[in-house]
Nucleic acid binder design. Structure first.
Lengths: 340, 340
DNA sequence: ACCGCAAAAGTGAACGTTCAATTGAACGTT
DNA sequence: AACGTTCAATTGAACGTTCACTTTTGCGGT
């Protein structure tokens, strides 16, 4: 019984015109008399015809699909970016194929391999486990792509905030509150954004003549950036002597993980220890106390990335290869004057 | 210059065989002598040939793509499910197209419309803004699909936990701690899971002869389930007199939002008010205090959904249409004996 | 009347793959 | 030596569109 899905041929037959005419009506190309257009449209409606995207892609050699290669979709930062990418893509008639790397180099390789099959017209990459390899692969396979939070040496356009500056501002905020012993919980060590935020932290300390520098590096990629690693890092910091009066964490999730360690140690935020995060995820405002953090314009970043990618796919070379968007320090209740 | 991507024809020419032979080698079908297979493989390697997925789909009439229609990817529950769906799909050689509904009926309709174009072989739906319409559409367009957290009256397979029972267990946990005034922050009212969790709450009260019943319903879909709505709901509850000594929130996000309202009111958790959440998202364990909650087996749910969908796409009718997976009460520091 | 020209519609091929049918060769059996 | 069977490989068509051309129609100007 199951009525086979109708094709253009069926529509053409019913409307008494050629297949090509139907195609023109559907795509709004060529010139069609109003009379026949009506007939065709009625036929389309009657059969509930929908053009086959596969056949169309076959012919046009483009799929109107973009890939979204994301380090870890369960990370709130990434899921917010994913939402915005999907939204921007949708607004431009593109669909999104989700490649979730799950923090695994293996999965990243597989995903890139899958992308190289040519199913997608372009690729948005949100961070990367193995940056060098990824960039090499993109170049070799000539995959049109745009990076978010993962800078390129070559010609792949990148969207980021100025992470060095942001790290500087976050740290300086603590310094201005009188803190002299400020620690830093760094993100995954090989990642550019970790390095840049760390660099900003260091520069701020240096510019203000502070010599106390304590950094916890996180090495296991699969643990990085999340609650658990922030928790473990903070415990490590609390064992140090003298212990810091303030901490700048490279992500909000790690900051909130650090909260846990601080509270467990019987210390109070911000009376005993001030905490600054990074990202301003939704949970930051609802943490106890609300988290002071650096707000990244994730939606704008994603929109900008998609816009750039669309331009690239349109054949235009990117004019500017590095798009820097503004961040913002959001002061909440997790930071206060340094204790005496 | 840009070397056009090679096709089977190129491989065939180089290897000195027919196109069909190449096809057989690539797909491992038919019988090919080891000698020619070697030759073909070498040619494939030399040209860096990759089969064109579009052309393949054109012929086979299947895309090895599944759609993931998700209410709101920024919701941690949904992003965890998305991760698991993508992972399970990947493991079975499928790719995932992400349709993010963003809590909007409009977007849900558009996404379903897009799915109906026939790009995907099947669809996983994680909750729905307009359940009735969605189910009707699926039936009309004969879209193979599986639901998560969104029950069907008809024949669409569904994966869920027993939300009534879970709501009951969560409430009973509070009752056992001696609480007599227990409020409930409900999720989006039209959603099945909201209704079921509420039902469980009510039954537990009834079974234990408690008459204090206070429910905050959230109506605006775009606000539901998140921190902000939990916060607002809790403020409302705190204005009531007598105020509850315990709250069961229909999601962890709302529970954590409620935390904020409780702390702002100068009350302590759990000494003054106990809180139970639902879902056991990662943040629950790192909240201050750690949140007692109902753990849902999201990864299993997603895996089960994908497995069912694959079976469906394989032409097998679903044997069981409702898959109920086990939940678990996780007791943490947000619940304690009722104050005197 | 005739020509020219634009608008409207049609035709056949092509996109890269797989399917169904077929050929050719190799080999053992009677 | 003729025959059937299996294995190896080939051939031509088809999947549903769109593209590049061609044909037909209609219409105004000289």
């Amino acid at each position: 019984m199951a009525a086979k899905t109708p094709t253009m041929k069926d529509v053409a037959r019913l409307a008494g015109v050629s297949v090509q005419t139907v195609s023109c009506v559907v795509n709004g190309t060529g010139s069609i008399s109003t009379r026949t257009r009506q007939r065709v449209l009625r036929a389309i409606d009657e059969l509930n015809y929908r053009p086959d995207p596969i056949a169309r892609s076959m012919r046009t050699r483009q799929t109107r699909l973009i890939g979204l290669l994301v380090l870890d979709i369960t990370n709130p930062v990434h899921s917010v970016i994913a939402e915005a990418v999907e939204s921007a893509a949708h607004a431009n008639g593109y669909k999104v194929i989700l490649y979730n790397v799950s923090n695994s180099p293996e999965r990243e390789r597989e995903s890139l391999e899958a992308v190289a099959e040519g199913l997608v017209d372009g690729l948005v990459i949100v961070n990367s486990v193995d940056r060098e390899r990824t960039l090499r692969f993109l170049a070799e396979e000539e995959i049109l792509s745009v990076l978010i939070d993962c800078q390129s040496d070559f010609s792949v356009p990148t969207v980021m905030v100025d992470n060095v500056r942001a790290g500087y501002v976050a740290t300086e905020h603590l310094i201005r509150l009188g803190h002299r012993r400020i620690a830093h919980i760094s993100g995954s060590a090989p990642m550019i954004i970790s390095q840049q935020r760390l660099e900003g932290y260091r520069r701020a300390l240096a510019d203000h003549g502070l010599t106390y520098e304590r950094v916890v590096y996180l090495m296991k990629a699969s643990w990085d950036w999340d609650f658990a690693s922030g928790y473990r890092a903070m415990r490590e910091l609390l064992e140090g002597d003298p212990r810091p009066t303030a901490v700048f964490a490279a992500s909000d999730q790690m900051a909130i993980g650090a909260y846990r360690a601080i509270v467990e140690a019987g210390l109070r935020i911000p009376q005993d220890i001030s905490v600054v995060g990074f990202d301003d995820i939704e949970a930051a405002a609802y943490a106890t106390p609300p988290l002071t953090t650096i707000r990244q314009p994730f939606t704008d970043m994603a929109a900008s990335a998609v816009a750039t990618l669309l331009r690239l796919m349109d054949g235009q070379r990117a004019e500017e290869t590095l798009h820097i968007l503004p961040f913002e320090l959001v002061v909440r209740g997790s930071t206060a004057e340094a204790p005496q």
